[in-house]
Amino acid sequence: MKKAQNLPPLTSAEIANLWISYQNDTMAVCIYKYFLNHVEDRDVRSLIAYTLHIAEEHVADVTNIFKKENLPLPKGFDEKYDANVDASRLFSDTLYLIHITDISKFALSAYGYALAVVSREDIVAYYTKCLEETIKLHNDSIATEVKKGLYIAPPKIPKPEGIDFVKRTDFLAGWFDRRPLLAIEISNLVYNTKRNAVAQAFATGFSQVAQNPEVVKFFEQARELTGKQLENLNGLLNKDYLSATLSVTSEVTTSTVPPFSDKLMMYHATAFTSSGVAQYGVAMSQSPRRDIGVVYAKMVAEIALFAQKGANILIDNGWMEQPPGAADRKRLARE
């Protein structure tokens, strides 16, 4: 890596993505050290160890970049304060594996976006490496799910018999005489049901171990909201006699000993929420049937409103670290 003085200053996009990466990877180190302390399955242990290794490596890389640029390092998360690896087991090995698969999908999107907006040679190289590592993690986690019979494949559809074109405007309708779901609509519905199932399980576990009563209530509400949205998405599939994922809350133990700080669990929830809004937006744009678009729009509104509750809790407790931003020109003009 070239020395920072021989490179142009970091752009806002580069600072923003590196800052977010540091937050996410310091959180991942805390989570996967705890997982590693309890996992029993050899294959899942290998995946957790690899996930932890790349998270620790990313933290070191970003730390090095910030130091060379003389930028203040974000606080992020510290295993001394935000994790208790010796806490009793809260999740099963199955949920560990499902979480890795889900988090790898989130990382693929995040690193792909970062790579698209950065330009400095060393930062491009960094996010290229991150993406390559995440591709391997994702492929290995899917292969492990298949091996263990845990992978739920999307529903099959008939093979197209030829090329066809839309002939009627009711192709876009959805309330009366609705057409069958398109393959892309099925794909998005299945993906989003799986994400809600994971989110519901983690909200269930976090509600049992959170210490702050307001945080407990937040996760109880998150459990109900994700369950409701899971039911809505499954309902759209069921109308075409298709099936998707099932609830995985049974993979949560009855432990009430907190493995993580309330701050970390709240940040984990906000990361899931922001990712969910983005994915719903993608699904909405790819669903021509109007009734499906309305369902997604309603769910985006629900989780956006819920995310505001989470942000208020983070702010009220002094847990929300302010990201880097533009200069406040109005304030500077008054000084």
Rank of each mutant, 00 (worst) to 15 (best):
T11Q: 14
T26K: 12
G235E: 09
I315N: 05
Y280H: 04
K75Y: 03
I315Y: 10
T226H: 15
T144Q: 08
V215K: 01
A307P: 02
G76L: 09
A269R: 07
F272Q: 11
S187P: 12
A199Y: 02
D86P: 06
V209Q: 07
R329S: 09
F165W: 02
S207H: 08
D82R: 12
R168W: 12
S141F: 11
S207P: 08
V257E: 13
N196W: 04
I292P: 13
S287E: 07
A114T: 00
Q322W: 07
S104P: 07
L150M: 11
E224D: 00
G276I: 01
V146H: 12
V300N: 04
M27G: 14
P8E: 01
M284G: 03
E56P: 02
E185D: 13
Y81A: 08
A49E: 15
L131K: 06
A271D: 12
Q308K: 12
L90G: 09
E69W: 10
R289E: 04
P258Q: 15
G76F: 09
T256I: 06
L225W: 02
E231N: 14
H138V: 06
S109Q: 13
D328Q: 04
T169Y: 10
A304C: 03
G276L: 00
V257F: 03
G281I: 00
S207D: 00
Q211H: 02
H38S: 10
F206W: 09
I157L: 15
A326C: 03
T101M: 10
L131M: 05
K105S: 14
K263I: 04
T249D: 14
E57A: 14
G318P: 09
L131A: 06
P259E: 04
S274L: 06
Y22E: 00
Q208I: 07
D82Y: 11
A304L: 00
Y191G: 07
D86V: 12
Y111M: 07
I313P: 04
S119H: 08
M265E: 06
F106W: 02
S207L: 00
A16R: 14
S12Y: 11
Q322L: 03
